[in-house]
């Protein structure tokens, strides 16, 4: 006799979960295409590419925001990944590495916006207030501890023995980095670059404090549009904010969790 077939609830729950995950993306794209969508209409009275066309013009300045966000995030990711990798070597080979690691956790764990508010005086004195350089420096200060801690497990006995081997064979420091350490850490460097890019790309509070509204990244734009109750442009900014990370995630997803546990 055949066993009785029972209907599994799991596919339904999973399908619902997939719909829930995809819903925000679809909704934001639709909202960015909409206009004159007043309560209680379930559908907008205008639906088209009018809002997106403004990206090409300078009316909302979104294209400029996109470019400045990209410039800031790429700079922060590049500098923090490189410095995090190089400096972490000194920290994690140091006899007091546990204490130094603890020190790195303080800025990492503090809310960036509070950190920025307490640092703003120094930025003002150094002429880094309200300009892109200041925002890059401020974001670098919060991305650097992440990058440094990220490489903590890379500097182990095995890597040290490779370095010793290169030195024994007559290689200098430059050759150790170029021929051994960078190729060994290639995957990790890529993930760190990706993660620090996202830290910078998603940052709002710190950017608003140090940029004082003059540096208008995409997150700043989203909030400005929310304050103006211009939800269509807000949704459009959200789309611009979300899609680059999705592309990066697609290429990097297999690496993202490798380092966390």
């Amino acid at each position: 006799m055949k066993p009785k077939q029972t209907l599994s609830w799991k596919p339904f729950v999973l399908s619902a979960a997939v719909l829930l995950i995809l819903f925000p993306f679809v909704y934001l794209v639709l909202l960015s295409l909409a206009s004159e969508w007043r309560f209680p209409d379930l559908l907008p009275s205008y639906f088209g590419l009018r809002n997106w066309a403004t990206i090409l013009g300078s009316e909302a300045g979104l294209l400029e925001s996109f470019v400045s966000s990209l410039l800031i995030s790429l700079s922060v990711a590049m500098v923090s990944t490189t410095s995090g990798f190089l400096i972490s070597r000194a920290v994690f080979y140091h006899p007091k590495k546990n204490t130094l690691t603890l020190l790195a956790y303080f800025p990492y764990i503090l809310a960036p916006v509070v950190f920025a508010a307490c640092l703003s005086f120094f930025f003002l004195k150094m002429g880094l207030f309200g300009n892109i350089t200041g925002v890059i420096v401020a974001q670098f200060i919060i991305a650097f501890p992440y990058a440094l801690l990220f490489f903590s497990s890379f500097w182990n006995k095995k890597v040290k023995s490779y370095e010793d081997l290169v030195a024994t064979l007559g290689g200098n420091r430059w050759q150790t980095y170029i021929k051994v350490l960078f190729p060994l850490a290639k995957g990790l460097l890529l993930i760190c670059f990706f993660q620090t890019f996202l830290i910078s790309w998603f940052e709002y509070g710190l950017t608003s404090i140090i940029g004082i509204g003059k540096v208008q990244t995409l997150t700043i734009k989203v909030f400005l549009f929310i304050k103006e109750a211009n939800y269509y442009y807000g949704a459009l900014s959200c789309c611009l904010l979300i899609f680059p990370p999705i592309v990066l995630l697609y290429f990097n997803k297999r690496y993202v969790f490798k380092k966390l546990v």
Partner: peptide, 17 residues
């Protein structure tokens, strides 16, 4: 892949949505 998508959404967008 789908389960990774929420990681691409920053806090400000989640709040807005």
């Amino acid at each position: 892949f789908v389960i990774y998508l929420p990681l691409a959404v920053p806090g400000i967008v989640t709040g807005f949505f």
